[in-house]
């Protein structure tokens, strides 16, 4: 760590901000996100009405340079829309290298972007930050995992896109017996049911000991669709308390990975 950057709470640089930008857009269903720089990598968290929590993870190996001061918590609130906009400041066709600086509590996040195709052009962005609220701790360590599913993301996106928009409730039935996965939606007057056996090509792994029925708001499930669109693989984990955790893997050309994660709270029985 050299003298110049050690005064900053957090500095990072990256060759291309494009993937980061699309990852941010995938969880951009709320105005602000909690930006948290950990030693392992960057994490941005967005919450909707204490029911859905979405996070974007960028492991530190995605950055060419990555420093976080280990004696302080680097955590602040930032407008995710503005951040995504700034990363895309040269347009979507342009790859631009990115540098991020955060001096300390209360100071803005500084971005320096430099397009790869042009020399001597750079943009300096200053995004003001706010003190972070506490982030919901949805994971309950006592609740055991009752089912785990690994699916191909594009195929799963296709299924979700075909669901009727007017439905409010989605019911997911998981069972060790055929059909292993069945997704039921209740519309105004009709009922639709999608059955997917574990032998299906889109199911890469399936584990479930005993049958479970889980109900969620379809609107909440639909929030993951943007992230599914840029991901290759999705892991669904169901806890015994009904909490659904979806982990999506985004693979880049350079074999490095970025992740997004969604916690979705179940609907309670009437």
């Amino acid at each position: 760590m050299n003298e110049g950057t050690s005064q900053y709470y957090f500095t990072a640089s990256m060759d291309s901000g494009k993937t980061l930008c699309s990852l941010l857009k995938a969880i951009q269903f709320q105005e602000t996100a909690v930006f948290c720089a950990l030693a392992e990598g960057l994490k941005l968290t967005v919450e909707e009405g204490k029911c859905v929590q979405a996070s974007a993870y960028v492991p530190s190996d995605n950055f060419t340079e990555y420093h976080v001061r280990d004696d302080v918590d680097v955590m602040f609130k930032i407008s995710i829309a503005v951040l995504a906009e700034c990363l895309n400041i040269f347009g979507s066709g342009e790859e631009s290298s990115l540098k991020m600086y955060y001096r300390g509590e209360g100071s803005p996040l500084l971005l320096v972007l430099q397009p790869q195709s042009m020399h001597n052009v750079m943009t300096d962005c200053e995004i003001s930050t706010q003190t972070a609220d506490s982030v919901l701790e949805l994971r309950d360590e006592d609740a055991a995992e009752v089912a785990k599913l690994v699916l191909k993301a594009p195929a799963f996106l296709g299924l979700l896109a075909d669901l009727e928009r007017s439905c409010d409730v989605i019911e997911i039935n998981l069972s060790p017996d055929h059909p292993n996965v069945s997704i039921i939606t209740y519309g105004m007057q009709d009922r639709s049911c999608i059955d997917m056996p574990k032998s299906s090509d889109m199911v890469q792994s399936f584990s479930c000991e005993s049958p479970v029925t889980l109900r969620y708001q379809l609107h909440h499930i639909r929030l993951i669709m943007k992230a599914l669109g840029i991901s290759t693989k999705v892991v669904l984990r169901c806890s015994s308390n009904g909490l659904l955790l979806l982990q999506l893997k985004l693979e880049k050309e350079d074999q490095r990975q970025m992740f997004s994660e969604f916690y979705i709270v179940p609907l309670l029985d009437d």
Binding site: P179, C193, D195, D201, M202
Partner: peptide
């Protein structure tokens, strides 16, 4: 495809 069955009632 993928062995998926969609049923609409």
């Amino acid at each position: 495809r993928h062995g998926i069955v969609k049923t609409h009632f």
